[in-house]
């Protein structure tokens, strides 16, 4: 899927954002803000970078993606559904009793690589996977996406230490740096300081990008992939929470709240 144009990625992202808002609206539950901020990164990975096969989701040499910020499940579910990993109709039963799509990712769902949702867990699992892939001498990559608020979890830094100790240059992480968490701005709740410097201090190669600029996202991933220097890579992606829906943008209220009926209508019109 290497030869995809930026225009095509934009069109796909709009569709994914439409799905995200609709599925959360129908469920009347879910996390729109962090799903929308991460959309361009996840779309770039799945449509522009990763070696995956929806017909054979468990093929051994596939690239793997672990959504460490599991509450952004609507974005990964939407992408997997559009790629044909499972029936798209499942999106409209998100978070509902008896549905396939749980509130947070679960490996029972085709294409999902790890059970996440409890913050800090996913990056550790990705470290273990990257280690396992190296043991198997695979030439693939493991990707993981963290929230910036998630980086307040101590486990993230345990994992960061281990990734560089074990020289996991087959691991690329992203921090979805939207600067908001449930209780407010990350600065007010628990200041993260300079995340880039923190990861650098833990031995990672760090890149900082605009997380909504496809050229930057794709080029940076390709650069990071090519650096087989023993260092894990972290891409700090500056993003806007709620990106794509005017009244959700940079609005902490939509971290974990579904739009009401009128808001849903407006949001879907904006994304049509």
């Amino acid at each position: 899927m290497d030869n995809i144009s930026i225009d095509e990625l934009k069109t796909i992202s709009k569709k994914i954002r439409y799905n995200i808002v609709k599925m959360i609206g129908l469920a009347n539950s879910g996390h729109p803000g962090g799903s929308l901020s991460a959309t361009d990164i996840v779309v770039s990975l799945y449509y522009g970078i990763m070696n995956i096969d929806p017909k054979n989701p468990n093929k051994k040499d596939r690239d793997r993606f672990v959504l460490s910020k599991g509450h952004a499940s609507p974005v990964i579910y939407s992408v997997l559904a559009e790629l044909g990993f499972f029936d798209k109709e499942e999106l409209w039963r998100f978070r509902q009793t008896g549905g396939l799509l749980q509130g947070h990712p679960n490996i029972k769902i085709p294409g999902i690589e790890a059970n996440t949702g409890s913050l800090g867990h996913g990056i550790s699992v990705a470290v273990g996977m990257a280690l396992g892939c190296k043991l198997d001498k695979l030439d693939n990559m493991v990707y993981t996406l963290l929230g910036d608020g998630e980086c307040q979890e101590g486990q993230v830094w345990e994992a960061a230490m281990a990734a560089s100790h074990y020289k996991l240059d087959n691991l690329i992480g992203f921090v979805d740096r939207n600067r908001l968490q449930i209780d407010g701005s990350t600065k007010d709740v628990m200041c993260l300081g300079d995340i880039s410097e923190k990861f650098k201090a833990f031995g990672w190669d760090v890149y900082e990008i605009d997380g909504h600029d496809y050229n930057q996202i794709i080029n940076t991933i390709n650069t990071a992939k090519s650096q087989k220097n023993g260092a894990p890579k972290m891409i700090i992606a500056n993003t806007i929470k709620g990106k794509g829906v005017s009244f959700m943008e940079d609005n902490v209220a939509f971290h974990g709240k579904a739009p009401n009926k009128e808001e849903l209508k407006q949001a879907l019109e904006e994304l049509s």
Binding site: E113, S124, G128, M129, G132, L135, D136, E158, A162
Partner: peptide, 15 residues
Amino acid sequence: QNMIGMASGLSLTGK
């Protein structure tokens, strides 16, 4: 905590 997470990741690669 990271040890258990790494254990999970390793098992997800068939170990």
